[in-house]
Design a protein around this nucleic acid. Structure first.
Lengths: 213, 213
DNA sequence: CAGAAAATCACCCTTTGGAGTGATTTTCTG
DNA sequence: CAGAAAATCACTCCAAAGGGTGATTTTCTG
């Protein structure tokens, strides 16, 4: 089996080194190139045809989000994982909207990097449930008023998961010891926040985002 | 009190071993013989006079259903429990019609095997529909492999994927150039075949089974 | 070709879901 | 503590979904 060809894009050379050190330990990953901004990312992608691009979000010249959007337009089959320091969670949603398939926090332990990328390369995980959940939770905790992109509350997230588990409103109400009215109310808010129309779309969303087991 | 004398009939030696391993832990069960097809089952029954026969359904030479029918003709007081891998639900009903008093799914936890056989041997359980129903329900819930007997047609699979894409029946009907009635009809059949209740469960199923992109 | 299986459509009826609106209580947080 | 956010509940209305039953046409297959 051939190794997965990986391209690293980050403006900090130490960051690139760190990632390289982590991944070089594993034979099934081959780092085929490195770049330090979005423009280089595009050129290197054309040139090297990597399987996976690890892309920093904040970069000079052209940032990771813009580069992701353009690369996905030209090479939709390339997988792009955004990397970032753990603070700027909100950018993740933009990243996903622009076409990134995954998301990694820089200061993750190296084994987790490997585990995650391994699964990611094999299409097993769109984005791990834990990471997604963690991000959402952090997001709820840290961010207070992004006004436009309102995060789900913990309770709403709970309801979300039960809906996507294919429970009816009635079943959810019994499980949470609240009235069916309340479940409907939560669901209404969830759908509104996520810009979805019904529970089937929500279920699809939950699974695609890797929020479920 | 004497142990119950048990005869195991299964064409797979590992299966027999598995069952033996489970039952040997309990003193009130004694395995008096083993056979690998229906013919052997008949001979061994004449020879050994077991109290209970655990009989696989699918076997070469003579299958478990036929063997059950003949043995019950000759030795009506012998109790026969059909054992089977979890897939072939419909065969179980045939087994009951042919005279089997009970059945067990192979990949049941060992404690349940014991509990069930224990009750069975003591005539505490007249092999009622309750158990059948219970086991069926459990096993539909836990082990939801699509039954081989009823695979989805290509069209049904097409509808399945559209449903799990979160399209409404109306949208699906427009996409496929058929009436909404027909979509409902397909969906009804799909849900029935997969033992699901609604489109949300189907969506969950589709994603969990990796049927979606 | 004939029978079986699949696909198509129709109608009825009940349950569930979702939008809209509004209100009260609880919890969090500066 | 006070105000904000979240959680709770209630009610109406209409659309969507799903079960049951049955029928016709098309396609597959021995």
């Amino acid at each position: 089996m051939q190794p997965f060809r990986i391209l690293i894009i980050d403006d900090h050379s130490q960051a690139r080194e760190g990632i390289r050190d982590i991944l070089e330990e594993y034979e099934d990953f081959l780092i085929v190139g490195e770049g330090k901004n979005g423009e280089e990312a595009i050129h290197l992608t054309e040139e090297l045809m990597p399987d996976i691009i690890l892309m920093d979000i904040q970069m000079p010249v052209m940032d990771g989000l813009e580069a992701t959007k353009r690369i996905k337009l030209q090479f939709p089959y390339v997988k792009i994982v955004m990397i970032t320091v753990s603070d700027d969670i909100t950018d993740l949603f933009d990243a996903l909207k622009k076409g990134a398939q995954g998301y990694l926090v820089k200061n993750l332990q190296s084994e987790l990097w490997y585990e995650y990328l391994q699964a990611f390369a094999l299409d097993e995980v769109p984005m791990s449930k834990e990471i997604a959940f963690q991000i959402l939770k952090d997001f709820v905790k840290n961010k207070s008023e992004p006004a436009e992109k309102t995060p789900l509350s913990a309770r709403e997230f709970e309801v979300l998961k039960l809906v996507a588990s294919a429970l009816s409103n009635k079943e959810i109400s019994e499980k949470l010891f609240i009235s069916e009215h309340t479940v409907k109310s939560h669901l209404k808010n969830i759908l509104s926040k996520l810009h979805l129309d019904n529970r089937v779309q929500l279920t699809k969303y939950a699974y695609q985002q890797g929020l479920m087991d």
